[in-house]
Design a binder for these strands. Structure first.
Lengths: 353, 353
DNA sequence: CGAATTCATCGAATCGATTCGATGAACGAA
DNA sequence: TTCGTTCATCGAATCGATTCGATGAATTCG
């Protein structure tokens, strides 16, 4: 492999000159620049990342901490991983994957060995031990999802607004008896952010609409879920719409609906909140997708901003040059609550029976 | 951050001594070792990866090239990414994610900047431009999936055996009229390995069983697929089993079956070949899963072996100490064709009608 | 024409860990 | 006592790129 010295020799200049040509940080005569460029092309030279890093203590790498619930794998996490990587590349960063069960230990290892400049944490939970490590090491990071305590930049879908929007739109389509299938019981018990906020959204929307909204909590056991659902659909007068936040068992759920003799959307409108693997091929239902690309872009940006923010703890003054100086405190640029949007076909009206 | 020099000072020794304590490559007195270890603990010292890499030109990082079909994301790829990363960690390697559309360019960049020691390529296709780059740079690599031309180590499920096994087992369960839904037309036209080999397997199994096997090619368009399927199920006497290799549209497929008035498995046994996201919750069908963990372990191992193999192009003499010397040539240890296995419930017998 | 500037480029130090030969102390043998 | 080993540790060179003065040539100005 060619080094900067080889290039310098071939071009008949000093290594430092080659470096200046590459970085543009000093003026170089056109002749020299051409000679150096030619030598670079002929030798196929590319600077060694390790040497750069050693000198600058910048790796241009982000560590991406993937959540690991043993024996479980959520397809959406893979999507986030890929989208975050794409976004990071857009800023000149590569991504190192952290999948160890002991995420805290792995983060410590990566941070202390200087393998990355910052971390992106996926699916953060309350009292997440990884956050502790980040603080202890003063390692820059950003979170996908949030809990209100973490003093770190984060981005998240506004689940409260998302569920509220789904219910409002369903009511606006004419439905008067709506069932909201929330997150699973164990998620609510664990007070997961999306679960709690989803319920809040349902409550809020219920208060401001004329429709009657029945809240039903989901269950990880397909049998239990099916049972609850059939029961909820059997009440009379029958509900005409089902807003679903727990999508994991959607195929089972649709199966249960269909075996109850109900056609979608003729007899029952089904509206989804959240995301599923494309493979499910469920593109025919009205829904609020999890804006994976948008969130990934935001979190990559936040993590990278956190690097230059460094010890002063605030993001670098990016675009906005002059905000109103003495006005109210500006929204914290480190928190990106993403606004939900409807996707897919329009919500069908209720059966005119 | 503490450096080896800080540790040395605190312990009252030379930096080289600290290094020897860490590596164990020279004998160190017990007293010195303890003093050094104490200094390391107190300072929370961890060697800088970049300095190590610069000296040794070893990164202990694998580059994982994820396939990118624009606008498409297959959940199974994320699983592979995670499992490969786990396997690599087991050997002391981290994983750098490569997701760029221009996979060849990205690999070139990563290889030439010395960010990784080897690459793992997922979902390799014929005449894959990435392979060209690897050869050009002499960069060690291993492949997930294969095409017969690539002169690189690879691992893959034996799709031919997998489909053959599925059909044989279905026949063994008593079915006499079986429909095999192969890969989608466009995949067969592109001569994708799994598609072609699946068909071969179906042909082979057909020849050696008494059952009548009708081969039906799938289609990426759900409508077309549904049409074909209904047609195939409408022939009389009716087929009693459906072996499916194209799982992408499985929910649609099951929908079509159910809307044809057929219950699974009472009226029609459905047997799957390949893998789906867990979210589908389709654990109730007999199937041959893609052995993701096994393949990931194998490919990580192959890639790492390829590093030490280096320029001589052969894997290091790993476990096997003495093979029969003058016997027939041993199976190429660089190719791991993985044997299929049935999973899930037993295949139901055909309806006794 | 000589002094003052500007300009392009060079040389050397630096980042942090590893590794080889050198060094000196301790010990055994003659 | 003296020479030859052995043993533990030290010092210096090295990996490759960056960056800050230093240097000398070219240019400008009085």
């Amino acid at each position: 492999m060619a080094t900067i010295k080889d290039v310098a020799e071939r071009a008949g200049v000093a290594p430092s000159t080659v470096s200046y040509v590459l970085s543009g940080s000093r003026k170089i005569s056109e002749d020299t620049r051409r000679a150096v460029q030619a030598a670079i092309d002929e030798l196929g030279y590319h600077p060694r990342a390790s040497a750069r890093t050693l000198r600058s203590s910048r790796t241009n790498v982000l560590a991406l901490a993937v959540p690991r619930v043993p024996g479980e794998y959520r397809a959406i996490d893979g999507r986030f991983a890929i989208d975050v990587t794409d976004a990071a590349r857009g800023h000149g960063y590569d991504v190192l994957l952290i999948t160890e069960g002991d995420g805290a230990g792995a983060l410590r290892r990566v941070a202390r060995s200087g393998l990355a400049d910052a971390a992106v944490l996926m699916a953060v939970e309350e009292r997440d031990p990884r956050i502790e490590v980040l603080h202890e090491l003063g390692f820059p990071a950003a979170l996908l999802g949030h809990d209100d305590h973490a003093a770190l930049p984060w981005t998240d879908l506004d689940w409260e607004a998302a569920v509220a929007l789904a219910i409002r739109e369903t009511a606006a389509a004419g439905h008067r008896r709506i069932v909201f299938l929330s997150s699973a019981e164990h998620e609510i018990a664990a007070r997961r952010g999306y679960a709690v906020r989803g319920l809040d959204g349902a409550r809020g929307a219920t208060a401001e609409t004329e429709a009657e909204v029945r809240v039903l909590s989901s269950h990880r056991d397909p049998e239990k879920l099916g049972h609850r659902l059939r029961e909820a659909l059997a009440v009379r007068p029958a509900p005409t719409a089902l807003v679903v936040q727990d999508l994991i068992l959607l195929p089972h759920l649709l199966g249960a609906v269909s075996s109850a003799g109900l056609r979608v959307p003729e007899d029952l409108s089904v509206v989804l909140v959240g995301s599923l693997p494309d493979e499910l091929g469920i593109r025919h239902l009205p829904r609020i997708d999890l804006p994976v690309a948008e969130m990934s872009t935001a979190v990559a940006r936040l993590a990278i901003d956190a690097i230059s923010a460094g010890s002063d703890g605030r993001p670098p003054s990016s675009q906005k040059p002059t905000a109103a100086p003495a006005s109210t405190a500006p929204a914290d640029a480190r928190h990106h609550l993403i606004e939900p949007r409807m996707a897919g076909p329009a919500i069908a009206p209720p059966p005119s029976g």
